[in-house]
Design a protein around this nucleic acid. Structure first.
Length: 545
DNA sequence: GCCGTTTTCGGCCCGACTGTTTTCAGTCG
């Protein structure tokens, strides 16, 4: 345990408080007491002052922090933790907390499993399910047992891959070790893949001096390749991949009489090694147009580069606006004013406000439109009055048509009934597209990269119907969704389906996620014209009408 | 646990959905 120091960060304190909430939840504590810790954790996380610098009186002035939690924060700043948390930690095994990640297992269920069956680990739970011991518990039944069995299967088979933020966290830790600017991220991260198995970087730092230090960062999930400045071109190419792309590129090089190696191009006739400081020089030497990393997936890009016929890809600077955002009206943490300011800062023409229909009554929606009109007078970036309307499990929408008709833009999304079979789920979405007011289908497969596989939607049918009805499909740019995936974007584009990138921003910082949407669109070979976001406001309004 | 006050208790975000019930509890977003 840490001793008194000034190093305790807000993130450390927030983590302790959030853990307290989770542990209380498992013990079956009062839900409002639990909520108090969760709220306090969020407040500390958001605070722009260092919590370690505040005294007890100042702490209690933060909304959601009273005398008790203020004391626990002071204790954490002084000692690294607080007594009540440590007592709970001693009482609740760590392996139990992990079980909360299983879909269908919430704190109350976990409490029962723990107290009634003595379940402590994932293996315990799996054995109990196999022995059919869950369905006889009070409040449990055969279906709940099956839900948990499915949750365990999903959890066990989750791919051991990082989301992009997790990969970025590894890069941040690397930054502290390597001298300034001496590395370039490569691998699937650089190609813009949705998830990353291993972070690969290329560095010109001194191998002898840094091998051990970088190894200490994350041996399992980080691979550092050392090179020298004069060989960066081929080193970066080889480290970026993909394997399929490198295979094609090697074939092309061989045709010209060269072997591709990280150290350079080996001239087969005389054994001479040609070195290149940049990737562009390598491509140019081989008579090719440079291939953007996002295209390097062996989908015909090498052939096109040789013919100087690569497509023009959309770029971040082409994007005129964002189609998906939430405010405090539903589950966001930003106001209309915050959104408009963020839009101005990004130089956008427009941002659509799309709060959840389930959280906003038709009356509140009308008030919001009036508020939007007031905010719009003060900003260059125009807010559009929109909604993310529920596609309910019976296929009906969260608002009546007369409500939808008053909106500038409507996203329709599935948030429930994820386990419906393919036909039922697909038909929900097809029905939603038939509604003339629905402009965009939100996160079309519903996947959450670190938590949940896509639902069983038939995207072929969805795309065919989208083309017919003129409905756009969203490219959800949240790094936890990245939905649609690139391969489907490619299909959608071929079928003439419009694509609409949206960040799903719940706070202003998340508008920056648009870069992920653009990256995904590029992986799907999108030109600027394939993304609705590249339209100026007038063009967008025309498309919407 | 916090907060506000009609000031020391009573309310705290909530709707959809599912599975368990037969009027509700738990999960999810």
């Amino acid at each position: 345990m840490r001793t008194a120091d000034a190093q305790v960060t807000n993130a450390d304190v927030a983590e302790r408080l959030a853990l307290m909430g989770r542990l209380l939840d498992i013990t079956g504590a009062d839900r409002y007491r639990i909520g108090a810790y969760e709220r306090a954790a969020r407040q500390v996380e958001r605070l722009s002052l260092r919590v370690a610098d505040l005294d007890e009186e100042e702490l209690t002035r933060i909304p959601g922090i009273g005398a008790r939690i203020a004391g626990q924060i002071r204790e954490t700043v002084a000692t690294g933790s607080f007594a009540e948390l440590e007592e709970l930690q001693a009482a609740i095994p760590e392996s139990l907390i992990e079980l909360l990640k299983i879909s269908g297992v919430g704190p109350r269920t976990l409490h029962t499993l723990w107290k009634q069956l003595g379940i402590l680990t994932l293996d315990d739970l799996e054995q109990a399910v196999k022995g059919r011991r869950l369905q006889n518990l009070p409040g449990f039944g055969a279906k709940k047992e099956e839900t948990i069995a499915r949750g365990i299967r999903q959890y066990r088979s989750r791919p051991d891959r990082m989301t992009r933020p997790a990969a970025e966290a590894v890069l941040t830790r690397l930054e502290a070790v390597l001298p300034d600017g001496q590395y370039t991220a490569a691998g699937s991260y650089r190609r813009g893949a949705a998830t990353v198995g291993r972070v690969t970087v290329v560095t010109t730092a001194d191998r002898a001096a840094f091998t051990d230090r970088v190894a200490a960062v994350d041996e399992r999930r980080l691979e550092v390749r050392f090179t020298e400045p004069a060989r960066c071109g081929t080193a970066l190419l080889c480290a970026t991949g993909s394997a399929g792309f490198l295979g094609r590129l090697s074939e092309a090089a061989l045709t010209s009489g060269y072997g591709l190696t990280p150290g350079g191009l080996l001239e087969n006739a005389n054994g001479r090694v040609h070195t290149f400081g940049s990737e562009e020089e390598v491509f140019s030497f081989l008579g090719m147009t440079p291939i953007p990393p996002e295209l390097r997936e062996d989908r015909g890009e090498v052939e096109l580069a040789l013919r100087h016929a690569l497509p023009d890809l959309v770029e971040t600077r082409d994007v005129r606006g964002d189609f998906h955002s939430h405010t405090t009206r539903s589950d966001g943490r930003q106001t209309l004013e915050d959104v408009a300011e963020a839009g101005d800062a990004r130089g956008y023409d427009y941002i659509a406000i799309t709060d959840h229909s389930s959280r906003v009554s038709p009356e509140a929606l009308r008030e919001q439109r009036a508020a939007i009109e007031r905010v719009n007078r003060r900003h260059d970036c125009e807010l559009l009055a929109g909604s993310e309307v529920e596609i309910r499990s019976d296929g009906s929408l969260g608002y009546e048509n007369r409500v939808l008709a008053d909106l500038d833009l409507v996203i329709a999304s599935v948030h429930s009934g994820h386990n419906q079979d393919q036909d039922v789920l697909t038909r929900r979405i097809l029905t939603a597209m038939e509604n003339e007011h629905v402009d965009i289908i939100g996160h079309p497969t519903g996947r959450l990269l670190d938590r949940r596989p896509p639902y069983a939607v038939d995207l072929s049918r969805v795309m065919a119907h989208a083309a017919e009805t003129g409905t756009a499909l969203e490219i959800n740019a949240s790094p936890h969704r990245l939905d649609l995936e690139d391969i489907y974007i490619l299909h959608a584009k071929k079928r003439g389906v419009k694509l609409a990138a949206g960040t799903d921003a719940h706070c202003t910082g998340e508008f920056a996620n648009m870069k992920n949407g653009v990256m995904l669109a590029r992986r799907g070979w999108c030109a600027p014209g394939d993304l609705l976001n590249t339209l100026p406001l007038s063009g967008l309004l025309e498309w919407l009408s």
